[in-house]
């Protein structure tokens, strides 16, 4: 599949064949089963529309691939169906600014 093809109306989709994450195309509740690579996987935590889950096991330090492009490195091992976000993915370029407690940038601001 080429980048930016139509996404259709499934719960999750893998945007490009080499991707190791899938994207939720609607909100998914904890406990729902979704199909990943032909296997049913139980979603353990709620996933909002557009958010990512691992489509296959991702090792700590491994590149995370979306639309065939690297979007950063995993900072922990991720099992299929688990969410991939700020807690386990970091940029290869520049840090992301968030309002989360304990973020390096915020610590600096609050000093």
């Amino acid at each position: 599949m080429k980048p930016f093809e139509d996404v259709g109306a499934r719960a999750v989709m893998i945007l490009s064949p080499g991707d190791n994450i899938a994207v939720a195309v609607r909100d998914i509740a904890a406990g729902e089963k979704v199909e990943l690579d032909g296997r049913a996987v139980v979603i353990t935590a709620p996933v909002l529309t557009g958010h990512k889950i691992a489509a296959r096991p991702i090792a700590s330090g491994e590149r995370v691939i979306k639309y065939g492009a690297p979007i950063g490195k995993a900072t922990a091992a991720v099992a299929p169906g688990e969410t991939v976000h700020l807690h386990n993915l970091t940029s290869d370029y520049l840090p992301t600014y968030t309002l989360d407690e304990g973020h390096e940038f915020l610590k600096e601001q609050h000093q």
Partner: peptide, 15 residues
């Protein structure tokens, strides 16, 4: 990339 982006599911600047 700001807090709203992250709440919306974007994790890194590359993404």
């Amino acid at each position: 990339i700001g807090p709203g982006n992250a709440d919306g599911g974007l994790t890194t600047i590359e993404e």
